[in-house]
Simulated assay, not measured.
Amino acid sequence: MTVRFSILAAGAICAAAASAHAQSGFDDVVQAEVLQGWDLPDGRRVAALRLTLAPGWKTYWRAPGDAGIPPHFDWGRARNLRDVSVTWPTPNVYVEYGLRSIGYTGQVVIPVYVTPARAGKPVRLRSTMSLGVCAEVCLPHQIEFDTLLDAPDASPTPAIVAALADVPYSASEAGVSAATCTLRPTDRGMQIEARVTLPDTGGREVAVIEPGVPGVWVSEAKTTRRGGTVTAVSEMVHQKGGAFGVDRSNVRITILGGHYAVDIKGCTGS
């Protein structure tokens, strides 16, 4: 079962947007639906959002890169919702005009694990997803959805199963034997150097560092591999300026390789 909902375009934000384009021409760049999913034995439900983008358009991963627009979910209007966890399939890396962005083209299914506040009762999944979509122009969008998850079903949904199979490997699954982070103060903030020891993930490897600190901007990581170790270096600056702290246990390092991706949660001091 799927439930369709509306897409609200908020207007162009890229300077590259040409005045000859009418806003009505962007109404159908992304279509969306909620996949009801199935119930788990522990009381949670696996549902998903399926986004279908028009040819030539892309949207962004949770860490979109310097040229991307980060997605955001507001679950404040949901009912009977204790917790929700979003699971992102492995994204693609794009380089345009010298800038790197990370996201998806075509179609992407984004699984969500939903925990009800009252077990066994329907969840009203009422929320807003803010996201960006880009082609020659970039548009911020809002997806408003209001779905009642009330159809008991233990049968896995094939599209969601496929999306879950496409998530990055965990550190243990990928054979990561060490992940260290070195932090150094800079004039504007802090530099982080992550070193991850793991087997080659294939092709050109791109590392993404997420510090786990709200309001901190992170530069595109300079990624190199020597033997069995990937080194990634990023600059971090707080959006409001000033000092900030980083808890290494909250640092998240994702390595996107040509064959597979790896999600490393936490690092230790060097």
Rank of each mutant, 00 (worst) to 15 (best):
H238V: 03
I209A: 04
G215Y: 07
G203Q: 03
T201A: 15
K222D: 15
C181A: 13
P185Q: 09
F244P: 11
E210W: 15
G202I: 13
E220K: 11
G202A: 11
H238F: 05
R226C: 02
E205S: 09
I209H: 02
A232W: 05
G202E: 08
K222A: 13
I209Y: 01
G227L: 11
V237L: 05
C181D: 09
K222W: 09
T224S: 06
S234R: 00
T231E: 13
P214W: 14
E205A: 15
Q191P: 06
T223L: 02
V230A: 01
R184Y: 06
T231G: 07
G202Q: 12
F244W: 13
V237W: 04
R184S: 14
T229S: 08
T180H: 10
P199H: 04
G228R: 10
V230C: 01
A221M: 02
V230S: 00
M236Q: 09
E205R: 03
D247A: 11
T229F: 02
R226H: 03
M190G: 08
S234E: 05
Q239P: 06
D187L: 12
S219Y: 05
V233P: 04
V237E: 01
A243R: 12
I209T: 07
G189T: 02
F244Q: 08
T223D: 00
D187F: 07
P214K: 13
T223N: 00
I192L: 15
V216N: 00
V216F: 00
W217N: 09
D247S: 12
G242S: 11
N250F: 11
T201C: 09
F244C: 07
V213Q: 08
T201N: 13
H238T: 10
A194R: 08
P199Q: 06
T186W: 05
A221T: 03
M190F: 07
T229N: 04
V218L: 00
M236Y: 10
V196K: 00
G241I: 05
V233F: 02
W217P: 03
F244K: 08
R195G: 12
E193N: 10
E205Q: 15
T229V: 15
W217V: 07
R225D: 00
E220Q: 15
P199Y: 03
T182I: 01
R188F: 15
R225S: 01
V196H: 01
E210S: 14
G227H: 08
G203V: 04
M236K: 09
R225N: 02
D187A: 14
H238P: 10
S219L: 08
L198S: 02
A194E: 13
G189Y: 05
